[in-house]
Design a protein around this nucleic acid. Structure first.
Lengths: 182, 182
DNA sequence: TATTGTTATACTCTATAACTATA
DNA sequence: TATAGTTATAGAGTATAACAATA
């Protein structure tokens, strides 16, 4: 037993066929590639968002409240897929930085409506510019048509994934009733 | 990213989502799609690897040592992009589960060579089957030629990303000397 | 009694440093 | 002195539970 590993004759294995017990390297794996690209993007995005309280999440709060209007903390937390307690800390930091404000909800005195301040809006515009640059950097080696193809395919996969597990949503607003879940 | 497995599963810090100051639609955001698909895969993979010590990382250890032969802990850690201390804990669990074994390196009495046991090899075969099913599930809505295109494009992006930041590597064997980093 | 938001606590993962045994 | 591996400790991030105010 021990020396297990069988002959490692065949390697290479194009981009498909993840198999490994047969000797194929890990990088032929979809998961591996997905992880590498994702982490690369996450790292670049974090750098582009440096200084923003909460990093990527801070951006999400700014972008969402700006695009969809003032939102209650709980709804915002649900949309972003984070716990409400996390949202409290996140908003504390963003508010301290003068990027968002908490206003009382006229319809429910328990709730607070979150909205970006003028400074928050300006910061958002700048952040979006940086993020677009980050995307171009990631897709750098692909030519125009390839980028388009990749975006379309990825988009379709994302829409599908989102439909299966509507957790990290950003547009599902109305359909509040959704029995299917984890 | 994360339940029982960090690496791939990590939540938070990930893909951004909404966009808006300029009015661009959410679906056009690369980060959002990347994050959704990645997390979907991570979640499915974690489920497929349920019970395996270390989750995705445990799988990587098994796959890599099986495909490339016995490796020293430090080299393995560098390839997988994890700290050597993490590797110690990970191998402790995998060894306890009887999936890998630590053998003394004849060439250096300080080092230990990691290799999968027969049980580890069998487990790997089963895990790969499950991961392939997971991939098919993720790519479900794409037809054959689309899947091929997506894999190829993603692979190219991953190779590029890996070249820029050779951290989570899995194939760089010969060019062991690579001081360049962050 | 249920819900919004806050706070306090515990748990997980990771990062740093110190230690041993070899080189 | 430097390196392979181990161990211990501290930190960030997250989840859980309890609390006050309101519905």
């Amino acid at each position: 037993m021990s020396s297990s590993s069988p002959d490692i004759a065949t390697r290479g294995a194009g981009g498909l066929a993840p198999s490994a017990a047969s000797g194929a390297p890990v990088e032929a794996d979809l998961g591996w590639a997905l992880g590498v690209v994702f982490r690369q993007y996450a790292k670049a995005a974090a750098a582009a968002l440096d200084g923003l309280p909460g990093g990527p999440r801070g951006y999400q709060v700014l972008a969402t409240t700006n695009a969809e209007g003032p939102k209650r903390q709980l709804d915002l937390a649900a949309q972003l897929g984070v716990d409400r307690t996390v949202m409290t800390y996140l908003l504390d930091d963003l508010e301290k930085a003068g990027l968002v404000q908490r206003r009382p909800d006229p319809a429910d005195r328990r709730a607070r409506l979150i909205a970006p301040t003028d400074n928050g809006y300006e910061a958002l515009c700048d952040l979006e510019r940086r993020l677009r640059a980050t995307e171009d950097e990631i897709l750098g080696i692909l030519d125009e048509s390839e980028r388009a193809s990749f975006r379309v395919l990825l988009q379709r996969l994302a829409m599908k994934a989102n439909a299966v597990d509507p957790l990290h949503n950003a547009c599902v607003l109305a359909e509040a009733d959704d029995p299917a879940s984890t």
